[in-house]
Structures are given as structure tokens and as C-alpha cells.
Design a protein around this nucleic acid. Structure first.
Lengths: 232, 232
DNA sequence: ACAAAAGTGTTTGGAATACACCCATGC
DNA sequence: GCATGGGTGTATTCCAAACACTTTTGT
């Protein structure tokens, strides 16, 4: 066929990236999905993703697709796992390098859904059955997020610059699916020394107003470079 | 060209696997390398690996290459990371899915080195500068091994069925590059309940003979399924 | 008997957990 | 003033780290 113009001595799988995007709505953890407009799996939800170009690494490809399909850029992103099951795509042999990203949801409006591409946040526990092997991808991503948040301060990637201790606790509880004691959680977090308390308080709440906090990125970088570890 | 018979509408990177193989010689941790007989990087050392076939997953490919190049099979193997830098292979665009494997060295004789393929164990700290981006791959593999050995009993994949506490300690110390107190190490390990003490002792040593231990795989599987965690 | 390395138990300090009262705000 | 949720400190428990003497074996 005339369009088949890239030829090789041995067959090659197609290479794609997919991106699991986590966001936090202040109550619980969410995942951004895109509804497929075409077969296979038309009408099913899936992670944004696409083919890797020859002049970009998989990470660059994942970032590019993320931006093209959702408008999101400059966020935390990390390689998750490569899925290569021979049968994972009914169209043929497709290997995908999955990434996961953490997004401050307030900084992005979802692109208005034309018919071709509808993006939507789903509560993690309400995610429906997904296209391809994306159920498996999501499970792996959630596990990674769980283990990662316990020893790296990635929670702050999901929160606005200013946030409160109860918000942070909800975030941890939602990701880890466990409850913390309010006092112990606060103690442990503050003992890391990575939070700055602001004098400003949350306005217009019908109860004692929580104070705003900020993540001390500078302090974290210092601790990082002196080989420091923490554990929540 | 006539040999270029697999054609696609868009260009595709080549897909390979590479395998970082760790072994333990009773004193310290070793890595198995293969000397390259052809360009690029002819004469340099690299990890065993090769192209992924269309009818196998990357993990199956990694296991196949491992067996073909070293005779090793049925060992612990796990996906490490996918390396996709555009420039990582001078021959063109090659993306590699790296794996790491843990081997009981006593169970394998290295294949006698014909001129095409020479395999050799290197002490981890004596590994020379490697071909491709394999220095980076090795660093990543070592980091993974370090973090993994602290909360999964993978150390036993590197030891014979019967081993001693001092051996186990040397193994941990070699991987983690730290020293443990003999008494605390023993206490901590035994408290996991994953070791069975045998009555048999090491023969012919010019000092008090250590007892042999065995890993209690059955117990571990039980604990696993009841959602158990440990930390060394 | 001596050298070399293994086996073992106790004490101590720090971290994690459990736990309860007071405070600020809007209605 | 009442309902709601936020802020804070202490007592206790448990785990990790520090630490030294005795035992076994070959020479």
C-alpha cells in the first residue's frame, strides 16, 4: 500500500504513551479520563495518550499528548510502567509506556468537549470499566501513588499553593484509603519542617477558620541534597 | 531495499529489552555483563538484551534473551524502567525496556565465552563504564534493588536454599552500602518469622560454626495474602 | 591456649499512638 | 448560645539502636 512508507527489516510494535492524571477536588482524589470517539472501545473511557514520535522521548511524548488532549502542562509527571501484553490492543501489536501526572485542578479548565474528545474527572472510586488494559494501568498507578506519597512530598503537587491542614489530611486519607488521627497527622507533618504556616485564615466558614499553609520547597531541596528521608 | 519488508504508515522506534542481572558471591553483590563483539561500542561491556518479537511481551522477551545469552532461566525478574532518549543508540531510534533479575550464582555456570559473546561477573563497585546508556540503567537498577530489599524478602533470590545469618547480613550490607549491628540485624530478621533455623551447621570452619537457615516461602505467601508488610 | 567468628539479651531513647479539652466563626 | 469544625499537648506504648560477654571450632 502506498501509505505504508516506513519500512524495516524486522517487524516493530507500535509505541504509545498513556497518562494517568490524578487531581484533588478538596474532598477526594480524581482521575481524568477521555471518552473514546472511535473504535476500538468507542464510547468507553480511557487515559489520554497517543503515538510516540521519532524525535521525542516517551516522557516528552506523554507531556505533549497531555497538553494536546487536556491543555495541561508543566505538571509533575513520572514514568509508571510499560504495558506490552501481545493482546492488549485489538488493532495489533501496541506497546505503551504509561506515565502518571499530578495536577492542581484549580489551575485548569477542562477543554470544552467537542464530539471527538470529551474529558471528564471521575472520583477514583467511581471510575468505570476502562478501554484496553487501562483498568490494570489505573490499579498500578494508584499503588504507585500510595507508596510514593508516604516518602515524598508529592501531595503538594495536587494542592494549591495555599492549603490547610484538614485539606492535606483529606488528600492523604483519600489516596491511602485510611483515616488518620487529626492531632497525630498534624504533628507528623509539621515535624518534617516542610510546611510554612501563614497568618492568613480561610474566610467565611461557619466555624473556627483553619490557617493557610505553604509547602517549603526551598527547605525540601536543601534536605534532598543532604540525603534526607521522611515517612508519613 | 528488498530486506525492508515490514512497512508502516508512520515511523516506529525499534523496541528492545535489556536485563540487569544481580548475583551474590558470598561476599558482595555482582553484576553480569556481556562484552560487545560488534559496533557500536565494540569491546565495551553491556547488559544482555535484544529485540522484542511480535509474539512476546517485553517480559517474555527479556527472559528469552536472558536464557539465550547466559543460560539463566526461571529466576526472579521484574520490570525496571523504559529508556527512550532519542540519542541513546547511535544506530537510530531504539527504545529499551529494562528489567532486573536476581540469580543464585551457584546454580549457573557461565557459558564458555566464544569470541562473539563473553559473559562475566563484575563486582558492583568495579563495573567499568558501559555501552549505550547502561551506566544510567545500572544506577537505576541498584536504586531499585536497594529500596526493594527493604520491604520484600528478595534477598533470598540471591542465596542458596540454605544460607547463614552472616551471609545474609553481608548481602544486605553489600546492596545497601551500610553496616548493620550483628545482633540487631539478626533480631530484626528473625522477628519477621520468615526464616527457619536448621540444626545443621557449616562444616570445617576454624571458629564457631554458624547454623544454616532457610527462607519460609509458605509463611511468606500466607502473610502476603493477609496484607502484611515488613521493613528492614 | 589462642585466634576467629557466632550466638545471644538488656537497656535506653525516640517515634508512633491514643486520647480530650478549648477556641473561633456563622447563624 | 449553639452547632460545627479547628487547634493544640501529654501520657503511654512500642520499636529501633546501642551495647558486651560467652560459646564453638580448628590449629
Amino acid at each position: 500500500m502506498d501509505t505504508q512508507k516506513y519500512c524495516y527489516e524486522y517487524p516493530r510494535p507500535a509505541l504509545t504513551t498513556d497518562c494517568v492524571i490524578f487531581g484533588f477536588d478538596g474532598i477526594e482524589i480524581n482521575v481524568l479520563l477521555i471518552e473514546r470517539g472511535i473504535e476500538p472501545f468507542k464510547g468507553k473511557w480511557a487515559f489520554p495518550g497517543g503515538f510516540v514520535r521519532m524525535d521525542e522521548s516517551t516522557e516528552e511524548g506523554a507531556k505533549r499528548e497531555l497538553f494536546e488532549e487536556t491543555g495541561i502542562k508543566d505538571v509533575f509527571i513520572e514514568q509508571l510502567y510499560t504495558f506490552s501484553d501481545v493482546q492488549r490492543d485489538p488493532r495489533g501489536r501496541v506497546v505503551t509506556v504509561a506515565y502518571f501526572a499530578l495536577v492542581k485542578t484549580s489551575e485548569y479548565q477542562l477543554l470544552a468537549g467537542d464530539d471527538a474528545m470529551k474529558a471528564q474527572w471521575f472520583k477514583l472510586k467511581d471510575v468505570p470499566s476502562l478501554a484496553f488494559d487501562h483498568d490494570l494501568v489505573l490499579r498500578k498507578a494508584h499503588n504507585r501513588l500510595k507508596s510514593k506519597i508516604r516518602n515524598q512530598p508529592i501531595g503538594f503537587e495536587l494542592l494549591d499553593a495555599k492549603f490547610t491542614m484538614p485539606q492535606l489530611q483529606l488528600l492523604y486519607e483519600s489516596i491511602l484509603e485510611i483515616k488518620f488521627d487529626r492531632r497525630n497527622f498534624s504533628n507528623k507533618i509539621m515535624k518534617t519542617g516542610l510546611l510554612i504556616q501563614l497568618d492568613e485564615k480561610v474566610p467565611n466558614v461557619p466555624h473556627r477558620a483553619p490557617r493557610y499553609l505553604m509547602f517549603n520547597k526551598k527547605k525540601y531541596n536543601e534536605l534532598q541534597s543532604s540525603g534526607f528521608n521522611f515517612e508519613i
